[in-house]
Amino acid sequence: MKPNIAHIALAAGLVASFALNAIAPQLDDYAVNILVLAGINIILAVSLNLVNGHTGQFSLGHAGFMAAGAYTSSIITLSLSPVLSTAPAWQGHVAFFGALLVGGVFAALCGFLVGVPSLRLRGDYLAIVTLGFGEIIRVVIQNTEALGGARGLEGIPPYTNLLWTFGIATVAIYVVASLVNSTYGRGFIAVRDDEIAAEAMGINTTKYKVTAFVVGAFFAGLAGGLYAHFISYIAPEGFNFLKSVDVVVMVILGGMGSTPGVAAAAVLLTLMNELLRDFEQYRMIVFALLLIVLMIIRPQGLLGNFQRRKRKPAQP
């Protein structure tokens, strides 16, 4: 690993985020809207990719972590808003950043809780368990009056801007890429490629799986916080199973295990959503067909390019 280049890329990404934020007033609202959604989707897809792509643990509960982060950070900024509404803007943003982090940490805690039972589970079972966890998070929010229940939370201060979104997206990409590309990170790939062999080679597969879940959930929580402080209104319905599927589609189309591919897919799918607005009815059908065909002819994903080794046939 050549840290210099990675750090330069990180710095460049952050500078680009600043620049983008600086020209934001020149853009119309809709363009900013698409950019922010694209940035949030990058964070979601790249973080899910750490779990699904790099570590080979299939999670279907990303929306649940997103919800955990979104609600936690919103509750904080909402309770602080009487103080912050009169304070200078920068103080609001500092508070917002703190709230985001707390939301991310809480989501990471949820990720830890999911990661632990996942130690015993493989592939398809894990997918259903994570789906279950995601749904449980949603059901709990829905039945908690303090979180607005089904009515949702409204009036969340709109702190999210292009700087926050792309700054965090850059950091997410940097963290995931550095994690995976470090010596330490070889472990993730080893767990994915052959868990039993990895274990035999002395790799602590448990630690890697839980790390992947915790880091993935943390960034999903940040993405949730950004989303909440952008739309200003959240309700449990927005974090359902189909939202998780959206992110899974990005990861698969982008190529599981390929960070640039997945980030590009996140942007591409956000744009497609807008371009194909009039064909909304067909959009998901096309994606579904794409998933099936891809798995048959190109399981590494549309944009991904790593060689996925053929596995031995499933053991009876």
């Binding site: 210099n4 890329a9 590309n181 470090s182 960070t259």
Partner: peptide, 11 residues
């Protein structure tokens, strides 16, 4: 490693 990070930024 780092190549993919930097090219991501480019992308």
């Amino acid at each position: 490693g780092s190549l993919s990070t930097s090219s991501t930024a480019v992308l």
